[in-house]
């Protein structure tokens, strides 16, 4: 970079200026949909419907949509369920992934290679959606919260990231502990987990966001609304456009409010991710780097 100060040609300077402007426009394209949703959610329904084109601020100011959303018990049920799935699902993911990665990263065992091949094979071939569904149902997990926690316990790609991290820990650490009579579980908890904590943190974020955003398995395994996560409720409001109890009467005011309710629901469901994102994004990015070393 220091060299650039010596001489910068005119074409280069023009390119730099255009690049800066282009990146600025790109950022607007990335952010504007969110801004639009936020502006629309705070707008007065009638004014929003009368407005045409882009929004640069809310049309009027109304909190009615948020009042409706936050008063809807299904939003809270959804939130509660999603938090349950994120907490317990991620915890189970991490336990299983770490166990698997530890076992497979140990050297000199006769069967780890066979087990590794058996596991990696599942990345390239699967029984498919319907047989998997039938197995989960056959286990009696239909309409059970466990259906969102157990079947996806290990993401094989994440497990390989974890195994790579554990294989990179110097053997001497483990050997000295083993010589002092430590069991494998002790080695795992006292040495491997603390040493590979940065990778585990990345996986916690990956699995956590995955659970927060997941909806498909819930839609096929959970018919009981009391157990459904927030994303399913969102889908019902946004896609299937079944407002249900949100706008019970069909008066015009209610129909208009139903529109801003959609935007408010998006905001309510996305705020946790948007708030946490700036603080966590560097860990996510680190995960990509780790994953790209050995895919």
């Amino acid at each position: 970079m220091a060299n650039n100060k010596i001489k910068i040609g005119l074409p280069e300077r023009i390119f730099d200026v255009f690049n800066v402007i282009f990146m600025f426009l790109l950022c607007i394209i990335m952010l504007y949909p969110f801004l639009y949703v936020i502006f629309a959610s705070f707008s007065e329904p009638a004014k929003l419907m009368a407005h045409s084109g882009m929004l640069l601020s809310p049309q009027g100011l109304s909190l009615d949509a948020y009042e409706s959303v936050l008063q809807n018990p299904r939003v809270w049920t959804g939130y509660k369920n999603t938090i349950i799935y994120v907490l317990f699902g991620t915890a189970f993911n991490i336990v299983m992934t770490v166990l698997c990665a530890y076992g497979l990263s140990r050297k000199g065992l006769m069967f780890t290679r066979v087990i590794t091949i058996m596991i990696v094979f599942t990345m390239y071939f699967s029984g498919g959606m319907i047989p998997t569904y039938l197995v989960v149902r056959g286990l009696g997990l239909y309409n059970s919260r466990l259906a969102l926690i157990i079947p996806g316990a290990i993401n094989t790609f994440n497990m390989i990231i974890m195994r790579t991290a554990m294989a990179a820990v110097p053997d001497s650490l483990e050997e000295s502990a083993r010589l002092e009579g430590a069991s494998h579980l002790q080695v795992l908890f006292k040495i491997m987990i603390p040493v590979t904590m940065p990778t585990i943190a990345v996986l916690i974020l990956y699995y956590g966001v995955g659970h927060w955003n997941a909806w498909f398995n819930a839609s096929i395994y959970l018919s009981d609304p009391a157990k459904q996560p927030l994303q399913l409720f969102l889908r019902q409001i946004l896609i299937t456009a079944n407002m249900g109890d949100m706008a019970g009467s069909s008066s015009e005011d209610q129909a208009l409010l139903a529109e801003t309710i959609k935007y408010a629901t998006i905001v309510v469901a996305t705020v946790p991710i948007l708030v946490l994102y700036p603080f966590l994004q560097k860990y996510f990015v680190k995960g990509v780097m780790v994953g790209s070393l050995k895919g």
Partner: peptide, 30 residues
């Protein structure tokens, strides 16, 4: 080998069961 490394195989046991049930059983289900 199993006698010597039984601890590691015990650690891998739930993992193998998981893959058998949720990946290999569906393959059989085809």
């Amino acid at each position: 080998d199993i006698k010597k490394n039984y601890e590691i195989y015990l650690i891998l046991l739930p993992v193998v069961i998981f893959y058998l049930i949720f990946h290999y059983a569906p393959m059989g289900g085809t």
